[in-house]
Amino acid sequence: MTDDDDLRARLRRADPAASLEPASPAQVAHLVEEAMSSSTKKWALPVAAALVLIAGGAAWAVTRPSAPEPTPAVAVSSLPARVVELTTTGVQAKCREPQPEQLASSADFAFEGTVLMIDNGRVTLTVSRVYRGEAADEVAVAQAGDSSETMLGSGKFEKGRNYLVSSADGSVLICGYSGEADAIGLRDLYEAAF
């Protein structure tokens, strides 16, 4: 135990925040007030993304995964015309480390694609590679809100960028399971999972 104490003490001496001055009461009050007065608008809808396939192949049969989804952040209800209506449940701010096994068991559709256009919150991606599921040429995702805390990259779809996206039951899997294709580790995760 003393060994541990020594090690801890030594690490503590190297603590870069050791001499950090405490926030002044005014700063604290300001931060608290800022948090409480922020309208939920900006933050309550951090993600909302759901998938609709305008797939080249007709209906890709939805094979429902028996394993629980990692973190379904959005609830989706499909309307007859395959337009997706979203209700946001708020996003999990805490995510587990993404695991390839989890991705493999949860995702029923996964692809790489480039954002072709974003129109009124509807994102159209051209598919360059399907990792899992029926082949598709285009995928439409309804994107609401400004950003997601949990989608890798800038947190939202941006025109011209390349994304790796997986979904289960028409819901985009977030929490590190979807995001910009060059986000660190994401491609490795996909290669490992599929």
Partner: peptide, 18 residues
Amino acid sequence: FETLAPAVIDAVRRYLAR
């Protein structure tokens, strides 16, 4: 929130400064 925020602010500030 006002009660617990100061402790959280202090701790998280340090966490981030590191």
